[in-house]
């Protein structure tokens, strides 16, 4: 939850800097780079987890089935809300 403090602080900072239009492109580029860094870290932490590596072929299939079910179900359900309340 402490990530929300940084987000809130960032929003405040961004609000104060909202007139500086030349900063927007730099901020967006920095976001892309940080996504790359975090994905590299995510990969490193998965590769270092021996429990995940050893069982990946056994439980990976089950996990994938659950992922597909969960994503499909949430997209279908929220689509009705999207159609009724959000789609212009």
């Amino acid at each position: 939850m402490e990530t929300l403090l940084f987000l809130g602080g960032g929003i405040l900072l961004g609000f104060l800097l909202r007139k500086k239009n030349n900063m927007r492109a730099a901020v967006d580029k920095s976001i892309t780079v940080m996504i790359w860094v975090l994905l590299l870290f995510l990969g490193i932490s998965i590769g270092a987890n021996q429990q995940v590596i050893d069982n990946i072929h056994v439980i990976g299939g089950k996990a994938l089935v659950l992922t597909i079910g969960g994503i499909a179900g949430s997209i279908v359900c929220s689509y009705f809300v999207y159609r009724k309340y959000f789609k212009a």
Partner: peptide, 21 residues
């Protein structure tokens, strides 16, 4: 470091949102 990277990312996303009225 991923925690700090996430904090940096959150701040940047916040700035991006705060600039968007």
């Amino acid at each position: 470091l991923s925690t700090y990277a996430l904090y940096a990312l959150m701040t940047l996303v916040g700035v991006s949102l705060g600039m968007d009225e």
